[in-house]
């Protein structure tokens, strides 16, 4: 007995130790970004900042506050995310509810009509040409309509309705003469808050984070979502100095520009991830639920 206890302890020690290393490796870059965003950029660039901020300054955040492009991107992203999530629910929920009713004729065929698109699709070019032909290029619709709902979402929401809207309740309402519209709105929807939460969260995060559709469908800077503005700052690094500062100083030295670019860089990472980072601990159980309902095989 003594021996098995001690090997148990060795096991725990090694297991927890390895886990701590993994957690450290995941946490370190996150902490560094936050610290670098409030540290003196020169110290950051010289590799003097590790985990704790040094030479604390909020210059980066001040510049972000006064940067119109970032604010505009933020606003656009909020509009696309809210509108896109609403559309998502409006298309998804009625469809999933209808599919959950067993008296629906041709249910199997309709389900396959949706599921088939998971395996085969037109691909990038035919989809782009269609969006173009529909006149959606450079409109808000190109941001919210393509990808508004996927076959997987339908499958998951349908399963939810089947499991969580008690049949006797629906039948009773029908005996009372309620229509399907009424039952959907007054019986099924009030019972489906968990699936609404999960679906909105996942779709909302997806919309907030996506850049590729904006890259191919939008060409007007004033419509760019935050992610495309970030792409300019972080990836292509094409922010011009007059954009970096509202009070662009003529003849600003190159070194100073690099300094600004650097402090802005870590600041925008924090600012753009802020909504999710704040919400995440509170919403974690919904996210987990979503990750799991999404994995239930029918």
């Amino acid at each position: 007995m003594y021996r098995s206890l001690s090997t148990d302890r060795v096991f725990d020690f090694i297991n927890n130790g390895l886990l701590l290393i993994v957690i450290g490796m995941i946490l370190f870059p996150l902490l560094f970004v936050v610290s670098a965003s409030i540290s003196d950029p020169n110290l950051v660039n010289m590799g003097q900042v590790w985990i704790w901020p040094r030479g604390i300054t909020f210059e980066g955040y001040q510049r972000i506050l006064h940067n119109n492009e970032i604010w505009m991107g933020y606003l656009n992203s909020i509009v696309y995310t809210v509108l896109g999530t609403l559309l998502h629910l409006v298309v998804l929920l009625p469809c999933a509810y209808a599919l959950s009713r067993k008296e629906l004729m041709g249910k199997k065929l309709i389900m396959w009509y949706f599921l088939l698109t998971m395996m085969i699709g037109g691909g990038l070019i035919p989809t782009y040409l269609l969006v173009k032909q529909l006149g959606m290029l450079n409109t808000i619709w190109s941001m919210v309509i393509p990808g508004v709902v996927g076959a997987w979402d339908i499958l998951v929401a349908k399963t939810f309705f089947q499991q969580n809207v008690p049949d006797p309740l629906v039948e009773a309402a029908k005996v009372d003469g309620a229509s399907y519209f009424y039952i959907f709105l007054r019986v099924a929807l009030p019972l489906s808050l968990p699936i609404i939460a999960v679906m909105s969260l996942f779709h909302g995060v997806g919309l907030w984070n996506q850049y590729f559709n904006a890259l191919i469908y939008l060409n007007d800077d004033s419509m760019y979502p935050l992610q495309l503005v970030l792409r300019k700052i972080l990836v292509t690094q094409e922010m011009r100095s007059e954009n970096l500062s509202s009070s662009a100083i003529q003849g600003e030295a190159l070194a100073a520009q690099a300094r600004i670019a650097s402090i802005l860089k870590y600041g925008v990472i924090v600012v753009s991830s802020l909504p999710l980072l704040i919400a995440y601990p509170f919403l974690q159980r919904f996210f987990l639920k979503g990750a799991l309902v999404g994995s239930i095989k029918e």
Binding site: P94, A98, Y113, T117, G122, L130, V148, F181
Partner: peptide
């Protein structure tokens, strides 16, 4: 009425999935 509830999704998949196909 169930088919009316299905309609938006059916249309969306037809236009944005099957037309590109």
């Amino acid at each position: 009425q169930l088919y009316v509830l299905l309609l938006p999704a059916l249309l969306y998949f037809f236009i944005l999935h099957y037309i590109p196909l």
